[in-house]
Design a protein around this nucleic acid. Structure first.
Length: 478
RNA sequence: GGCCCUAUCGUCUAACGGUCAGGACAUCGCCUUUUCAAGGCGGUAAUCAGAGUUCGAUUCUCUGUAGGGUCACCA
């Protein structure tokens, strides 16, 4: 058995941003190349000038960069098959087109677009698939570059082929047609250009969505006409929109992946999540680093059915990845979402506060939300409070005040350097345990320190505030 | 309409033809607790329907149903 050098590619068209569907396709192709020490190519399929959106290429590159999906050859770094922009390879497509013309397998379309449109409407009216080849001219003119060039399907037949994911696939003869190779504007169609490029670039494994199954016979017939062996095909199941019905698409709310970055998801969590959307390792592991994924990824375990995005699971996976980060990494990320310096300074001094925050978020953007809701203000700013809220159940304010006085006395006895969570807890618990219920002390202390109905426990707050501030806040409420 | 693909808890999924149909997210309950979060423990919850093959079918076959894709001078 001869080992083949794996070459995969991701070939987006520059028509806007990347959504998770495209990214997952890129990811699987990338993982497969990495796993096999192969080559991963980024190629831009910019053959439709009308749909092109300015800035897309930059945006696509930024998206892939964010996720760490890097390429060995591509538009910004070059490579031995440059250019990686199809619009700069027009001569090459013409060359291959000429080969087909010479074989009598390509001819200029004599009809106008309107005429073809009428054929199509007729077919639709008759509830039949539209087949251009039924209108194929008897004799072919010489191609003058002004008309679109069509492929003359050599043999109308059914196709069977093997797919690395779906196994044996087949299609009836109506999947075969005389499709356009080169458009009247001189640009090739996807159907033709990607085949030429895959051949030229030595691509061994083509990964793409299910929507291409029905055009695969067209591709196979081109390979046959050229006398070239097609690559391996790995068809990916679709990713469905939130309703679980339709394939995810830009028109129905698919998000730019960079929005996930802006919301504060970790790239490795995003990769982890997307890898699991349509693939599984065969055991029960779910949290993977990128390196682990490269090791265990396998085409044979890609699923066949469409999967719906589950944002809650993404949050969970992101949280699991957050847990793995060092304090430095946590700070670096969290600080991006903190507008005020007081809080940053405090976090720099108190690792405990960093821990509180990181435990309560599933993505960095949640920090912003906490701040906006004022959930962190009390750490560096005196809280506002109302006396009634000191009350725990039906205990009178008088008793509460009395309890708080005891707490103040006890806390005062702690030396500044001993003012840490363990000691604070000890001291307060001693008092609290003698009460009818601990809440009679712990609730008012927590409330006096935080001014909030919901907050972290009073012991940790006290340590973070420090002895002076803690005592001062308690004094104020009695 | 033709052709093609798919079908297991709400969601993502696992299960050489023989499992009590397993895991994860979500959800619910309990524990821990002064609240919230976290954590620990546990529960509810699925093989689309009908035939066939077989001693035995989630698994194989057929039909139906449902969903998806495709039938461009888009990719």
């Amino acid at each position: 058995m001869q080992e083949i050098k794996v070459v995969t590619r991701f070939a987006p068209s520059p028509t806007g941003f990347m959504h998770v569907g495209g990214i997952r396709t890129a990811l699987y192709a990338w993982l497969w190349a990495k796993k096999n020490n192969g080559t991963f190519i980024l190629r831009i399929e910019d053959t439709d000038k009308k749909r092109e959106v300015a800035g897309s290429i930059k945006h696509i590159i930024e998206s892939l960069n964010w996720l760490g999906i890097n390429w060995d050859e591509g538009p910004n770094i070059g490579g031995s098959h440059a250019s990686y922009l199809q619009s700069e390879r027009l001569d090459l497509y013409k060359k291959y087109a000429q080969i087909l013309i010479d074989k009598g397998l390509a001819y200029p379309d004599p009809y106008t677009e309107e005429e073809v449109g009428i054929f199509r409407d007729q077919a639709e009216l008759a509830k039949k698939p539209f087949l251009y080849r039924e209108h194929r001219p008897e004799t072919f003119n010489v191609w003058d570059d002004m008309k679109p060039l069509r492929f003359k399907t050599p043999e109308i037949k059914s196709y069977k082929w093997n797919d690395l994911v779906y196994g044996d696939l087949s299609a009836g003869p109506e999947a075969l047609d005389d499709f356009i190779l080169i458009k009247s504007d001189g640009y090739p169609t996807y159907n033709f250009a990607h085949i030429v490029d895959d051949i030229e670039m030595g691509v061994t494994h083509v990964m793409r969505g299910q929507e291409f199954i029905s055009s695969t016979p067209k591709f196979l017939s081109i390979y046959e006409a050229l006398g070239i062996k097609p690559p391996f095909y790995a068809t990916l199941p679709p990713i469905m929109g939130a309703d679980g019905k339709k394939k995810l698409g830009k028109r129905d709310g698919a998000k730019d992946v960079l929005e996930y970055r802006n919301e504060g998801y970790l790239p490795e969590a995003m990769i982890n999540f997307l890898a699991l959307l349509g693939w599984n390792p065969g055991d029960e592991r779910e949290i993977f680093t990128v390196d682990e994924l490269i090791k265990v990824f396998n085409i044979s375990r890609i699923g066949h059915s469409g999967a719906q995005m589950n944002l809650e699971k993404l949050d969970w996976i992101n949280k699991e990845h957050i847990k793995k980060l060092s304090n430095e990494e946590l700070k670096e990320n969290i600080f991006k979402y903190i507008p005020n310096n007081e809080l940053k300074d405090l976090i720099n001094i108190k690792n405990q506060l960093l821990e509180i925050i990181s435990k309560r978020i599933s993505k960095w953007g949640d920090v912003k939300e906490m701040i906006e809701k004022g959930e962190l203000d009390f750490f560096y700013k005196e809280p506002k409070f109302s006396k009634e809220k000191l009350i725990y159940k039906n205990v009178s304010l008088e008793i509460i005040s009395n309890n708080l006085k005891q707490a103040i006395n006890a806390l005062e006895s702690l030396k500044e350097k001993d003012f840490i969570v363990e000691n604070i807890k000890n001291v307060l618990m001693q008092i609290a345990n003698n009460l009818d219920s601990r809440g009679e002390l712990l609730h008012p202390v927590r409330y006096a320190l935080s001014g909030l109905d919901k907050s972290p426990d009073p012991f940790i707050i006290a340590e973070i505030l420090g002895k002076n501030e803690t005592l001062s806040r308690l004094q104020k409420v009695i």
